[in-house]
């Protein structure tokens, strides 16, 4: 490959009409770079879940995307309510989503577990009342 890419997307809390836009752009970039389809698929699942989490829970956020020869790194950082208990949030089925969001078919408590399953490495840090930072790493070799 040899080519390096770095991009940034902003995400607005509550704007479900744009949810998935950043993930879709990242997918296009990875396809253009010729990254293995199996890795792209896992990256897309993890990124989309993180993007939806910002839309569903935070006030605003950004997604920073970078690729080099060895790895894909996606950092999702938001200003929002934060996560009180990260361990609990990682449990399948645990959710703090509102009923409106659940009616849309989101908020089933599968987001973070899906991210964990699909990312090679997932790091979550959060401060209640301030926001959350999630880092997804995918190895290319």
């Amino acid at each position: 490959m040899g080519e390096k890419i770095a991009d940034q997307y902003s995400v607005t809390g509550g704007d479900f009409s744009r949810a998935g836009y950043a993930s879709s752009q990242i997918k296009k970039s990875l396809k253009k770079l010729g990254v293995d389809m199996a890795i792209i698929k896992r990256t897309v699942v993890a990124t989309y879940e993180g993007e939806v989490n910002i839309v569903a829970h935070a006030w605003s956020g950004k997604i920073v995307f970078a690729v080099d020869d060895e790895k894909i790194r996606i950092v999702l950082e938001d200003e929002g309510p934060g996560i009180e208990d990260i361990e609990q949030a990682m449990e399948e089925g645990f959710s703090t989503a509102t009923s409106e969001i659940r009616e849309m078919g989101f908020g089933a408590g599968m987001g973070l577990p899906n991210m964990k399953k699909n990312a090679d490495h997932l790091h979550v840090e959060s401060e209640v009342g301030k926001g959350t930072r999630v880092e997804i790493t995918m190895h290319l070799n």
């Binding site: 009409s17 998935g20 879940e49 939806v52 078919g105 989101f106 089933a108 599968m110 899906n114």
Partner: peptide, 23 residues
């Protein structure tokens, strides 16, 4: 459930659902 489809559906499949919104 959208996360269920995201996590478990695969390329080329037909998705059957009652959800009608843009997501």
């Amino acid at each position: 459930l959208l996360s269920d489809v995201m996590g478990n559906a695969d390329e080329g499949q037909v998705w059957i659902t009652l959800q009608t919104h843009k997501n």
